[in-house]
């Protein structure tokens, strides 16, 4: 099989450029974040001075009691007898104000009710409105975060809500479009013609022609006319036809 060296070098060049662009994009955002945050990696938490670290020596056993909170209001409740494990959760880093809420409660556990803290944790998910919270729950959130209705308009919450609403639809539609494009390219003799008819309603006929009759269209047609691919298509047709002939000749 012949491999076009020019295409490989183009792919390599594109991969290098994509890598550099991504590194520059994330790097610039990191620099901006560093400047805005004044060099502090994470906001210092008060509870560390109140709650001692737990250390376990090899072979040592300790019995400790923990208060737990549900992080996701949409999930089912755990059943009696379910096992729990103690672990870090990415939600603490990813969800805005969750650390502040736990910090306030752990620093002053006797000041706040567990139920109010739970409502505040669910509020950081973005599914609960500020107006629907009890006054003491709002007080708790304001004390913990220093803001009234802190998640309102927060881009992290907005993004997660957008993803939960549109994620499935976007994934399904793009998967369908991609797979049907692959289907056209490998199963039809001149895919560019079908492609042009499919997109001509969206863009002007001239642009549709430019897209489909340009280099990408030529590449698709060349790939579709590949002798090995044509032979694969014919072989599968012949195999299926033989199978049907065999089944129907037995029936007769």
């Amino acid at each position: 099989m012949m491999i076009d060296i020019a295409i490989i070098s183009k792919i390599r060049k594109a991969a290098i450029w994509a890598g550099l662009s991504l590194a520059a994009f994330f790097g610039i955002i990191a620099v901006i974040s560093l400047v805005i945050s004044g060099g502090a990696f994470e906001k210092p938490m008060q509870y560390r001075s109140v709650i001692p670290d737990i250390t376990l020596n090899p072979g040592e056993r300790k019995v400790l009691e923990f208060e737990s909170f549900c992080l996701d209001s949409g999930r089912g409740s755990p059943r009696r007898g379910d096992d729990y494990s103690l672990m870090n959760t990415p939600a603490i880093k990813l969800r805005p104000y969750l650390r502040d809420i736990f910090n306030e409660y752990l620093s002053h556990p006797s000041r706040w009710k567990q139920g109010d803290v739970q409502q505040a944790v669910w509020y950081t998910q973005g599914n609960k409105k500020w107006q629907d919270l009890q006054p003491e729950q709002r007080d708790f959130i304001m004390t913990a975060t220093g803001k009234e209705d802190p998640i309102s308009g927060h881009p992290v919450i907005l993004l997660s809500r957008m993803a939960s609403i549109f994620g499935t639809v976007v994934k399904t539609n793009l998967l369908l479009a991609f797979l049907v494009l692959v289907l056209m390219v490998i199963a039809l003799p001149f895919p560019s013609a079908y492609m042009e008819r499919g997109i001509s309603w969206m863009v002007s006929p001239r642009l549709a022609q430019k897209i489909t009759r340009g280099r990408p269209g030529e590449m698709m047609d060349d790939f579709a006319l590949n002798p090995k691919l044509q032979s694969l298509r014919s072989h599968i047709d012949v195999l299926f036809t033989r199978l049907v002939y065999r089944i129907f000749s037995r029936r007769r």
Partner: peptide
């Protein structure tokens, strides 16, 4: 907001 919070904020936009 610390570095991680700001980084997440900008990336989310």
């Amino acid at each position: 907001m610390g570095f991680l919070g700001t980084y997440g904020y900008i990336l989310s936009i």
